[in-house]
Every structure is written in C-alpha cells, then in structure tokens.
Amino acid sequence: MDKKLQFSGLWAVILGGSSGFGFAAIEKLAKHGMNVAVLYREIAGAEKILKTKFTEIAEENGITILPHNINALDTVSRAAFIQQFADIAEKGSVKLLLHSIARGNLKPLTIENGTVEDEAYNELSIEDIQMTTYAMSNSLLDWTRDLLKAELFNADGRIIGLTSEGAHKYWEGYAAVSIAKASLESLAKYMAVEFAAYGLKTNVIQAGVTETASLKKIPGSDKLIKAGIKRNPLGRITKPEDVAGVIYLLCTDESFWINGAIIHVDGGEHCR
C-alpha cells in the first residue's frame, strides 16, 4: 500500500497551523494522504503567502487543505466552522484534532519598584491567566465536545496537545503559559479516560526547546536555546519536523493503545 494513501479520506483539524509545530504537522500528514482543515490568525499579507504554501502542499500530495483565518477561541467562530466543515467532511472522518494554539501573556507576577501605571500594564493579572489558560488548554475540551456532537470524529480518533518543560520549572515571564500547560496536561489525563468511550485517544507531546516564533517571544529565549543545545545528548535543539513525525506516529494504527501519555520529543534533553 502506498504510504501516501495511508490516511486517504481522513481529516486532521489543526488549531494553530500557520507556523511551528502545526505547519510542520500539515506537511507531514499531507505526505500520508490526510486532508487538513487548518485554523490560524494572520494578517492579509502573511495569509496570502501562507495560502500559497498550502496550495503547493495540497497539489503535491493530492489532498485537500481548507484554510480558515478565524479566531479558534471564539464560540461563534467555532460553531460556524464546524457547520461549514460538516458539509464537506464525512461523518466519522476526523482522525486527528491537534491543539497547537500559542497565545498567551508573557508577563512577570510582580514589577519591583514600578509605578502604578507600570504595574497595571506589565504585571500578570488574573484575567491574563484566565485568557492564556483557555487559549492553550481548556479550549481543547470545547473543540473536542463540538466535533463529537457533530459526529465528525473517527471511531479511532486521536487528540494531541502540546506542552513544554516550562510547565514544570521556572522560565522568565512564562507564568501564565506554565499554568496553562500544566492545566492542559491534567485535562488531557481526564479526557483520555472519559472520551475513551468514543474511541478517542488523548495524548500530550512535550517538545524540547524549539526555535519557533512563539519561543522567540519568551524573555531570555536565546538562553533557553543555548542551554537546550548544551543539555541535549544529541547536540542540537528540537526541530518542528521532529515533533511532526511523532504526531504522525500517534495517528497510525500501531499507536492505538497509547492513551493519556505525556511523550517527550526532545532527543533526551529532559534527561539532564
């Protein structure tokens, strides 16, 4: 059997696929015949370039890519997307829901010796934490429920979230994201148990330090990259395609018994 047809007729719904892990996953899954509905937020100029890339990937691999420049965190937008998508995709055809949304506040918990105005702008607020946690964790539950209600999930569907080492140790300015990632790991555990009744397997990938647009926004990201190279037994940091390869593996028939796991994809970086 031609591996490019391995996922023929099946779909991936990728939340946050304009760059980084999400985009790399699209490239990888397309090579194996999986159609993709991708959601992202981009300005007009960047979206034009992105759509050209999607067209090239789709034509090269003989699959369909449906780009949607919408807010995946908005209830109305989510409902509209699922309604439109259900007119295109067959029931039971969504093999993968990949949550790759990188949207959060990168502020410290406190600003020493700052003015009131500085504190209001620069200190992490409870609202910042709530927004970040919904964006990078809890929204996965809403998407899962709505795709289930629309009967779009495959009987052997896969749900994958993305976490980081920053959920377990201190990174400068990373508090809100750390809280969100820790929440995601806990949520995925419960989803693994409670959505198993629908045949869904829920797992989380902990990627190593990866030079993405999201990483560069973190204060001191250059230090994280240097430390990652030094710590990694294989002598380099993680690449998006490294993670995309494991996302593909988690969609295969052979991985059907992996459920509720946090999978390190970092070349052994976490061992040091």
Results as ranks from 00 to 15, higher is better:
221 S>F: 15
216 K>A: 12
211 E>V: 11
208 G>I: 04
194 E>I: 04
216 K>P: 01
232 N>E: 10
232 N>W: 07
198 Y>G: 00
231 R>E: 12
221 S>T: 07
223 K>R: 12
193 V>H: 10
201 K>Q: 01
214 S>G: 03
223 K>L: 07
198 Y>S: 06
232 N>A: 14
227 A>Y: 14
224 L>C: 10
213 A>Y: 05
202 T>G: 02
220 G>L: 05
208 G>R: 01
235 G>Y: 11
220 G>D: 06
206 Q>T: 13
226 K>F: 12
225 I>P: 05
218 I>Y: 13
200 L>Y: 04
195 F>I: 06
211 E>Y: 11
200 L>V: 04
198 Y>V: 07
203 N>W: 01
193 V>N: 13
218 I>L: 11
214 S>L: 12
209 V>K: 03
209 V>P: 01
218 I>T: 09
195 F>A: 03
223 K>H: 13
210 T>Q: 06
194 E>K: 06
219 P>C: 09
226 K>H: 14
199 G>H: 14
194 E>C: 01
225 I>F: 04
227 A>G: 13
201 K>G: 08
227 A>F: 13
229 I>R: 09
233 P>V: 08
193 V>I: 11
230 K>G: 08
224 L>H: 09
193 V>S: 10
217 K>F: 14
200 L>F: 02
219 P>Y: 13
212 T>S: 04
224 L>K: 04
193 V>F: 14
235 G>A: 07
231 R>A: 14
203 N>L: 03
208 G>C: 05
213 A>C: 00
211 E>L: 05
228 G>R: 03
212 T>P: 00
199 G>W: 11
208 G>W: 05
235 G>E: 08
195 F>V: 06
221 S>I: 14
228 G>C: 07
206 Q>F: 14
217 K>N: 07
198 Y>R: 00
235 G>N: 00
221 S>Y: 15
225 I>L: 10
228 G>A: 05
209 V>D: 00
214 S>F: 14
206 Q>R: 14
194 E>T: 09
225 I>C: 12
206 Q>P: 05
221 S>K: 08
231 R>G: 06
227 A>I: 04
221 S>E: 10
202 T>I: 00
232 N>P: 09
225 I>H: 11
206 Q>I: 14
203 N>V: 01
222 D>V: 13
215 L>T: 04
193 V>W: 09
193 V>R: 10
214 S>M: 13
201 K>W: 01
195 F>T: 08
209 V>F: 07
194 E>G: 04
225 I>G: 12
209 V>C: 04
201 K>H: 12
219 P>K: 01
221 S>H: 15
212 T>L: 05
197 A>F: 09
222 D>M: 11
231 R>Y: 15
233 P>I: 11
228 G>E: 09
216 K>Q: 14
216 K>M: 15
230 K>Y: 15
234 L>F: 15
223 K>T: 12
202 T>M: 01
218 I>A: 06
231 R>C: 11
224 L>Y: 15
